[in-house]
Every structure is written in C-alpha cells, then in structure tokens.
Design a protein around this nucleic acid. Structure first.
Length: 419
DNA sequence: TGTCCACAGGAAATACGGGGGT
DNA sequence: ACCCCCGTATTTCCTGTGGACA
C-alpha cells in the first residue's frame, strides 16, 4: 500500500508540474528582451486594437502636408512615462517614411534619445553622432564646433528632415542653447525642410522655455493621456496571449493588473512588468496567476525598485538614507527634524569613514530622497524654535531593515575595495 | 507687534578632473 | 608640455520665512 501511495504522489506531482507551466515565451513579459520584429508585432496589434488611435490620427493630420509639398510645423508632444509616446511616434514615422519612399519624396527621420541625462554639450554630441557628423567626445570641444559639424553634414540634403527628439527635458544644462540651435539657427543654415518633434514627459515642460523658442510651438501640441484601465486591459491581453499558456490566469487578473497600473500612473511598462512578475511567482508556486499573487508581485516590484535605486545611487545618497533610518530608530517621536538627521549623518560618516559634506548639500540630499519617495518630508515652522524639515519614513519595518542592510553592504564592500 | 529661531534654498565661487588643440 | 574648454561636486555666502513667545 505505501508503494502505491508513493507512486500516486509522484504521478500527481508530475501532473501538477505539467499543469503549472504557464509561461510560454518569457520575452513577451519583458520589453528589454523583446526582439525588434516581435516588438513591431506587438505594436501592430496594439494599434489595431484602437489604442492610441486619437494620437496617431493627430500625427497623420499634422504631417499630411508633406504630400502636398507643404512644410509642417514643429511638434511638441508630452505625456507621462509609459504612455507610448516613443513607440507611437517611431511607429508612425516608419510608416510615413515608407509612404514617402513610394511617392518619391525625399525624407529622412532620425530618433535622438536623450534618456540619459546630460548637458547641452552631450545632446549636441549625441545628435552629431546620430547623423554621423562627428565622433564621440567627452569634452574639450566647443559647442560652436559641434554645431558646425552638424551643419556641414546636413549641408547637401534637400528633402524633409524630421528630428524626433525624445525626453528633451533631460538636458540638464543650457537647454535653451540646444533648442535655440535646432529651432532658430539650424533651419537657416541647411537646405532641408526641418521638422522637429520634441517629446517630454513633464507637463510643465514648455513653461520653463525661453519664450522666443516657446512661440514656435504655439498650438502645435499633442498630449498623450495616460492609458485608462480599458486600454491597459487590451495591451495586457495581447501580452498574455503571446507569453502565457491558455488558462493560466484566474478570473479578473487582467482587470486587477490594469486597475493597479492605471491607478498609479497609467504606465503600460509597469503593467507589463507586473504581469511578468506575477507570472514568475505563479510558476514558482505551481499555480495559476491569482489575485493574491498579483498583490505579492506588486509589493516585490516595489521593494526591488527601492533596492536597485539605492545600490546604484552615489555613496552620499546612501549615507543620507542610512542616517535618516538610524535617527528615526533612536527617536521616540514618529518623525525627525533636519538638524537631528544631520547629526546622525555626521556620526554615520565618522563610523564608516566617509567624507562628510556640509549641511547645505545634506539638505539637497534629503530633497532627493523625498523625490525618490524613500522618505516623506515637509517643512514645518515651530515658531520660536525655528523652521525645519519634518522627516518620516512611511514603510513597513521589514522593508526599512532591508534597505538599511543593502546600504550597509554596499558601503562596506566599497570600503574594502579602497583598502 | 516685533523678535528671533533654525533652518530652507538660491546664487556665485571654488575645486577638481579630464579631454582637446597646438 | 602647456593652455584652454567643459561639466560636476561642494562650499561659501546670503536672503528668506512661519509662527511661538515676550
């Protein structure tokens, strides 16, 4: 009888494992790994599902003038991250470009991606490299020279030139110089019909521009609204169909992921990565994707985000976070003031052997921590007892501990390397 | 009502590192 | 080798500021 039991158990396990395979093609759960052709495929389906229909239509009408020989204006686009700006525009430009080839209209389009934050010089250099007008420089060459390189390279192209500039607001320094070059100077010096598409994810972006530059974009704006839950559901079901085996999701899973993602930011990328994480957890647990698993995946993603953020952050940033954690452990209140935090930071630096910075910089570090949602701070006046930041950490104890250990590890390892 | 705390946060100055041209 | 250019990180200096307290 025991032998019989054992056999049955194994059979059950095998059956179970066979059932529990739910991931068919993991690449469709991770945008980074998606091959180009697959990405095209997914895009095609998304657009066929009428998601981003309005925006594509707007783009079409904006550029329709090309076929009548007109010169369309520059276009400013904004929308939050993960609303499909880049993909939609790239997709559209490809179609436009092949259409122009058919009709024998010379058109060149380039995609300049400024995702990595850098100064004006970097942006110019990136553009020059993209156009194959210059080699890569770190520094040592003037803006002027870089601009001339670009102009020289473009001096004999006479068709339409569309420059699609992604994440413009990422230019950290002298952004106006870069834009003024593109908008005012470049068109006068090259024969082609230049059309700029500037993309940004900050809604307030145009307000910080030089008014003379801003005027070039009046009424030529296109806003990508965040995906609503319905759009996200469409996007998710496309992914699920490609990535997972049939029947591997419980009732309501798509709706729930879509709801979580749209509540946060309407970010499609987040929705997909939540789906991915859920799928992996489900496979590990040998079950379908259930609503509970989604919750777990969501909190794990959050933790991961914090930890990788810290691991890759500068030492001083880590130290500031550690100091805040230490200080808030000591205090009996449920918040700490910036003075206390700075004292704690000084102790921490002494202990770890890290050079300590002035309180001025420390204040900026605190602001950054706040921005990253690692701490919450607000400025409070305690009357006679001065003004101060009131800092609190709004996280479960376990996560705080986890973060603290990560920092300790990261700083500890670096100290070893120095010796 | 004025004072004054304990900081916030902007601006400019300084230090530093590293690359290019000649 | 020398000088110039540029970007980043910090420091230094400075001007606010909300409200408890006298």
């Amino acid at each position: 009888m025991p032998a019989e039991n054992c056999k049955r158990k194994i059979v059950r396990q095998i059956q179970h494992m066979a059932q529990s395979r739910i991931i068919k093609n993991p690449r469709f759960l991770d945008d980074e790994q998606l091959l180009n052709s697959e990405q095209q495929n997914v895009l095609e389906e998304i657009f066929n599902a009428n998601v981003r229909d309005v925006e594509i239509k707007e783009l079409s009408s904006h550029f329709a003038g090309i076929f009548r020989g007109n010169h369309p204006y520059h276009l400013a686009i904004w929308g939050k991250t993960g609303t499909g700006k880049t993909l939609s525009v790239a997709y559209f430009l490809n179609i436009l470009s092949s259409l122009c080839t058919d009709k024998n209209i010379p058109l060149l389009h380039k995609h300049l991606d400024l995702t990595n934050r850098g100064p004006c010089f970097r942006a110019l250099n990136d553009l020059a490299c993209l156009l194959d007008a210059s080699k890569r420089y770190e520094r040592g060459i003037s803006h002027e020279e870089m601009m001339r390189n670009i102009e020289r390279k473009l001096s004999d192209f006479k068709g339409y030139l569309i420059l699609f500039i992604d994440e413009v607001d990422n230019i950290s320094h002298d952004r106006d110089i870069f834009l003024a070059f593109l908008i005012r100077r470049l068109p006068q010096r090259i024969p082609s019909k230049l059309i700029l598409i500037l993309v940004s994810n900050k809604l307030s972006w145009p307000d910080q521009l030089d008014p003379r530059i801003k005027s070039f974009f009046k009424n030529q704006e296109l806003v990508f609204k965040p995906y609503d839950a319905l759009d996200l559901q469409k996007i998710l079901s496309i992914r699920i169909e490609k990535a997972l085996y049939k029947n591997s999701t419980e009732q309501g899973v798509i709706e729930k992921i879509a709801a979580i993602a749209s509540r946060d930011h309407g970010d499609a990328r987040k929705a997909v990565s939540l789906l991915g994480k859920s799928a992996y957890l489900a496979e590990k647990a040998g079950s379908k994707i259930t609503l509970n698993i989604i919750d777990k995946a969501s909190s794990e993603l959050e933790t991961d985000r914090y930890l990788t953020l810290l691991r890759t952050a500068p030492q001083q940033f880590q130290a500031a976070m550690a100091a805040v954690i230490e200080a808030s452990k000591k205090t009996k209140k449920n918040f700490i003031g910036s003075g206390e935090a700075y004292d704690s930071y000084k102790h921490f630096c002494n202990r770890v052997g890290l050079r300590m910075l002035t309180d001025r910089v420390f204040g900026d570090l605190l602001a950054e921590l706040d921005l990253a949602c690692l701490i919450h701070s607000r400025i409070v006046s305690r009357g006679r007892y001065g003004r101060s930041r009131e800092i609190r950490i709004d996280m479960p104890y376990e996560l705080i501990q986890n973060i603290y250990n990560t920092i300790a590890e990261s700083l500890g390892i670096q100290a070893k390397e120095e010796n």
